[in-house]
Design a protein around this nucleic acid. Structure first.
Lengths: 219, 219
DNA sequence: TGTACATCAGTGAACGCGCGTTCACTGATGTAC
DNA sequence: TGTACATCAGTGAACGCGCGTTCACTGATGTAC
């Protein structure tokens, strides 16, 4: 979010006096913004470097002043996605004191699903890099989001009076549930029975047992 | 499963008398088998037609005698994946009478996860076709698997004495949970907290609330 | 204040590559008579 | 039983394409003196 807002501001600022200066000013952010814009257009897949450069109004080679490779550009785009998700949560979720931990956890899941369904290709890209270790920024952004989920899960587990060690597996299970729901939904796999079905927004509390009361503790 | 077994048998039969006859005999199945073999080799992504033809020992153009396009070949490969999963379930799951519906449902989930983790690229491919309507065989194979899950979910819901209308959303939630778990796991996203974690094999009953007892019926 | 110059951010053209697909063809097969 | 011929399943070469990346370059910027 931050990157794009900044960039749009910059673009406004620059486009007024002279439309196409030789030095762009903030091409790095513009390239990321262009890639996100292309991801938002139908058809899915990651855009080519050439398309990104074209939309940013710049030669292809200029990209290499700011990113060592296409992969690195796309990693930055993924980072931006996780940052937006994180911001969305921080700006919209109520305090535990206000809403209670369980309801807050549910709302977190709802925002997650809405975020993903609103930008399918961008969301997919966020999970496409196979080796996170090669992109520390991406790993950090993804971990920050996961830690946010973990916090919320821990509060819910605490609220329910269960063993705190449940928090980690519960957070993973919750993430798996919403991620799986999103991926199946985007792939058109949730109508296979013939019935139209959109799982209720209350996906998490209805179907996720948190914590599993019947068991003494995590194995 | 069926396709490949047949094919291997055929290959044995043929390789004995003359090693490379002009007419292959069952090239269609061999191409599918070759694609699956390539998917099993590291590195992920869908193989190129050229690689598939090379491994099958045939010219590239020969592929077009059996499939109208690369996409159609890969759709057949996906069909084969669903067929194998279905077979695996039918051959390994106990009766409801023996194991009880809930435990059977759990075992179904375990087999699903093991299937996916044993053949990651093949599994991914099974979910990659965006428009199932263009590949009726694929849609049918996927639906058959889903209906198998739905059956098992329905039995579990029945066993618990809950409203039968819970079966469909419960089946979808269960599928979302295991699919999400598999996809995150394959993408290396389940160790983001720093802790190594493999969700227990008892993923479904521990975390999936089936049916959600607190609620009167599906919304 | 003006100028020389190092540094930075762009350009335009070209590179080699592997891809899916198509073409005109040839060799093998099986069937009618 | 032998032969003509339609049909089918392969081959080998070529097509055009878009791709990521690299090259030698030029224009703009800012700083030391």
């Amino acid at each position: 979010m931050a990157i794009i807002d900044e960039e749009l501001t910059h673009m406004d600022k620059n486009s007024a006096p002279d439309s196409a200066p030789y030095h762009h000013g903030n091409l790095r952010a513009s390239l990321v913004a262009a890639a996100i814009e292309l991801l938002a257009r139908v058809d899915g897949g990651a855009p080519s470097l050439r398309e990104v450069a074209r939309l940013a109004g710049v030669s292809i080679a200029a990209v290499y002043r700011h990113f060592p490779s296409k992969e690195a550009l796309l990693a930055e785009v993924a980072v931006d996605g996780f940052a937006r998700l994180n911001t969305r949560w921080r700006e919209n979720l109520p305090d535990v004191a206000q809403a209670g931990a369980e309801q807050r956890f549910q709302l977190l899941g709802e925002h997650y699903v809405q975020f993903a369904l609103a930008a399918p290709a961008h969301y997919r890209l966020m999970f496409e890099h196979q080796d996170l270790r090669r992109f520390p920024d991406l790993e950090r952004a993804a971990r920050d989001c996961f830690l946010f989920v973990l916090d919320a899960a821990a509060a819910t587990v605490r609220e329910a009076g269960a063993d705190a060690r449940w928090a980690l597996p519960a957070a993973n299970a919750a993430w798996a549930l919403v991620h799986g729901y999103v991926m199946l939904s985007l792939g058109g796999r949730l109508t296979l029975s013939g019935a139209t079905l959109d799982l209720p927004a209350t996906l998490l509390p209805r179907f996720l047992r948190l914590p599993p009361e019947a068991l003494p503790g995590p194995r």
